[in-house]
């Protein structure tokens, strides 16, 4: 005898019972105690076959291999750069991962990336202690110059991008801005000054109203109708 106690996409708080019985399995952000499965974070219930999981509504960014993030250089060492990643952990990028061109032994590394610079980088490795390795060698990775940076909750990043990038391409198309969304919740917007402002407003609006349905249509109206709402 097993049954699910919560509806799909229902908001639950930590410690709420999701399902009873051994027929269901605890997935992401849940745990089993005795015969019951409980939630571990504030989020939305998801049922995938026999697995109960929770999609968090808030919370810190967890670095993952392969993620594209936007990070800030805060130190230069003998062999590379140290980055702030908008998490509790700093990341390291080795000289050999910085550029496809040859970097000489005695070259001044601050000429390539100096302290305070932001860059779009990719995570190549994360250890159990959350030590992060980065690379800038892959296509699309570059140093950031100009434009503006917007910090959002990292759990809202998928919403900003939308299904198959529908939301982000909508904003790009309507504002003509160049937008890069880092998985760590930092968004880079570059374009004409007033359009940048509009894109920033749009991004912040998606963050605030992320749990609403039909958001892409609402955003289309917002971006077409100028500054209404």
């Amino acid at each position: 005898m097993s049954n699910i106690l919560k509806k799909e996409r229902e908001v639950v708080i930590p410690g709420e019972c999701l399902a009873e019985g051994m027929d269901y399995l605890p997935g992401d952000n849940t745990y089993r105690e005795g015969e019951k499965i409980f939630s571990k974070v504030l989020g939305l219930v998801g049922v995938a076959g026999r697995v109960m999981k929770i999609t968090p509504l808030s919370g810190p960014y967890l670095p993952r291999t392969g993620d594209k993030i936007i990070a800030k250089v805060f130190d230069i060492t003998m062999s590379g750069w140290r980055f702030q990643t908008n998490t509790a952990y700093s990341a390291m990028m080795n000289v050999k991962d910085a550029s496809s061109r040859f970097i000489k032994r005695d070259e001044d590394l601050s000429q390539i990336l100096s302290i305070g610079d932001y860059a779009v980088v990719k995570i190549t490795k994360v250890t159990s202690q959350n030590l992060i390795d980065l690379t800038m060698k892959e296509p699309g990775m570059h140093k950031i110059s100009g434009g503006r940076l917007v910090k959002i909750n990292s759990q809202k990043v998928p919403r900003i991008i939308g299904k198959q990038g529908s939301m982000i391409s909508l904003i790009k198309e309507k504002t003509g801005c160049n937008i890069t969304v880092g998985q760590n919740g930092i968004v880079w917007i570059k374009g004409e000054a007033d359009k940048e402002l509009l894109a920033e407003k749009a991004v912040k609006m998606i963050q605030e109203r992320s749990h609403e349905a039909g958001l892409t249509d609402k955003m289309e109206k917002f971006l077409s109708g100028g500054a209404s709402q």
Partner: peptide, 11 residues
């Protein structure tokens, strides 16, 4: 704590 998305077993 729950609002901040910190994993916790119970309130």
């Amino acid at each position: 704590l729950a609002d901040a998305g910190i994993p916790m077993k119970d309130m």
